[in-house]
């Protein structure tokens, strides 16, 4: 993908979406890599006993997908400065998670060319399961 520059973006423009399809195996890998062994993420019986429809995706994993969408877009020369997410709904395994982003503000601060990007993940029902913001620094052609 070509490097994106500050001059290339506009407020209101979308960044390329990313679609993920997590499996229970991926949640087990994530549990191991992150140290988050809460059973709702890999033990179906435990999850159901806790009132859930089945194992659910770690909020941090969905936020990781959103992070990948942003860093893929930023390329080599862009920098992620801040990332946040609110976990609003559940993503189940064996379902698409669609990651989206939209530039909502383009500004210069202390000589740095920055943008604020709204980010969100959707489940197949179109519900926003994670919503958040990324603050990024983009290279300038100037």
């Amino acid at each position: 993908m070509a490097q994106v520059y500050f001059e290339d973006i506009n407020e209101g423009s979308d960044i390329p979406a990313l679609v993920k399809y997590p499996t229970t195996m991926q949640l087990v890998k994530y549990a191991g890599a992150s140290g988050d062994f809460y059973q709702i993420h890999y033990d179906k019986d435990f999850a159901i006993a806790n009132g859930l429809p089945g194992v659910i995706v770690h909020g941090w994993l969905t936020l990781s997908f959103l992070g990948q969408m942003v860093t893929d877009w930023l390329g080599e020369k862009g920098t992620l400065l801040k990332l946040n997410g609110s976990y609003r709904g559940m993503n189940k395994v064996h379902e698409d998670i669609v990651c989206n982003g939209k530039v909502v503000k383009k500004y210069v601060e202390d000589g740095r060319t920055l943008a604020r990007v709204d980010i969100w993940a959707e489940n197949p029902q179109g519900e926003k399961t994670v919503t958040g913001t990324a603050i990024v620094q983009l290279p300038s052609k100037a």
Binding site: G51, G59, L80, L81, L83, N84, Y87
Partner: peptide
Amino acid sequence: KRLFNGTSELEY
């Protein structure tokens, strides 16, 4: 007894 992660925020 039920626990959920609500929000996460990171500044690099």
